[in-house]
């Protein structure tokens, strides 16, 4: 069955690059197709009807026309521009960091509704008044999980033994999790994590993060 020539989707602009005189090449993370690269024609002109709807870190409803190589954005309507995030220098840079991670972690045109929702949730949190850095840690952990690299925090990835709670352990990025004392010996590159840090990671990993977000990491640990 031939694909329809135009399609509509929700998308967050995660990267942009100027193209030609007044066009822009955008990298979008869409709800229905995953990462898509598309051209926004004429957006750099002041009277462009796409204008602010396709600015970085803006979630919009877009109509796209399939092109030979790149799709072309034909209509746009902003859903959320995350204003509160963009008027704060620190939060804007966090937002750009999130966008960059999504761009680097995803192949083109591989849809993941879950990742799209994680992205929106994180941008909403950065635009809200919760603790921004906690939102970032939550995002990183869940991005890893969606990409297939969920860090193993309860069982040793080397020998599958259950790990002891409440003591310092070594995290190995190569093994993809916390190592037991025995497996740790052979691993050259490890990061030592405190029991509190491990507990916190576990909590972020297994919850929707709302409770921790309100108070921040250090307070949540003491609670």
């Amino acid at each position: 069955m031939p694909q329809p020539r135009v399609y509509e989707t929700e998308a967050v602009v995660i990267r942009k690059m100027n193209l030609g005189e007044a066009d822009r090449l955008l990298t979008l993370y869409t709800s229905s197709l995953g990462k898509v690269r598309a051209v926004a024609k004429g957006v750099r002109r002041p009277r462009s009807k796409l204008g602010g709807n396709v600015e970085l870190l803006t979630c919009s409803r877009l109509m796209l026309a399939r092109g030979r190589n790149l799709d072309i954005i034909t209509q746009s309507q902003t859903i959320d521009s995350f204003m509160a995030m963009k008027t704060d220098l620190q939060r804007t840079s966090w937002g750009l960091y999130v966008a960059e991670l999504v761009d680097r972690f995803t192949p083109e045109r591989q849809a993941s509704r879950a990742l799209f929702e994680l992205l929106l949730k994180t941008l909403n949190r950065l635009a809200g008044d919760g603790v921004g850095e906690t939102a970032l840690r939550y995002f990183e952990l869940h991005l890893l999980e969606l990409a297939g690299y969920r860090p193993q925090l309860s069982r040793c990835p080397g020998c599958n033994t259950e790990l002891p709670l409440s003591c310092r352990l070594s995290f190995s990025p190569v093994a993809g999790g916390l190592l037991c004392m025995r497996c740790r010996a052979g691993e050259p590159e490890v990061v030592s994590l405190s029991a509190d840090a491990i507990r916190m990671l576990g909590r972020l990993q297994d919850s929707d993060g709302e409770d921790v977000l309100k108070t921040g990491l250090s307070q949540a640990l003491n609670a």
């Binding site: 002041p46 009277r47 009807k49 204008g51 602010g52 709807n53 600015e55 803006t58 746009s76 902003t78 521009s81 204003m83």
Partner: peptide, 16 residues
Amino acid sequence: LPFGADLEYADDLTLS
């Protein structure tokens, strides 16, 4: 708003 623009096409940020 830029001169000569259609209000209906203005994005939310510009309009606000």
